[in-house]
Amino acid sequence: MGNSKKRVSYHGREFIIEPIDENQININGYVFAPKVVQHTEDRFKVTIGKYNFVLENIDGKLYLEGEEVDINIKPYIGNIGSNSHSFELSKASVQAPIPGKILQVLVSPSELVEKDQEILILEAMKMRNRILAPITGKITEIFISVGDVVAQDQILLRIAKD
């Protein structure tokens, strides 16, 4: 069962795909029914609902709608019983993307935060930079306070999924 699953890297992002039958394919939990409506040896026209996609294979390179495709398909090796390969991160450390000074800390320990919620304001390059929560979860540790000068990549706080 599991070996029909594949791990696809497309334009720098990862997807888990799994063909359901000849007509349907599951992408990250969403099911699509791509139909190859026309094809020559190296040109394929695919429809999904009202959308059309033209895929070309030119000298071993793929082009979607004329734009070069960066895709890599690998077998999916599941790691049963471990969370480390699950799709969503269960823990995240928030690092300073840039050296600067902590202007505001908008969360407190054990506070629940939503993904993309503003958690810190870092003053760097003369600007107020908003730092957002990378995942939904609970603030487990805060290592800095207002006024601290932080270095690039310094860990500022940690968030864990409940």
Binding site: I25, P34, V36, I48, K61, V69
Partner: peptide
């Protein structure tokens, strides 16, 4: 959603026609 569709379309063709592509 649009990106998922593109991945679906490309994967389907690559699987169906056993396309081999060079690493980009």
């Amino acid at each position: 959603n649009y990106e998922h569709m593109k991945v679906a379309a490309i994967s389907q063709v690559m699987e169906m026609f056993k396309l081999k592509v060079q690493p980009s």
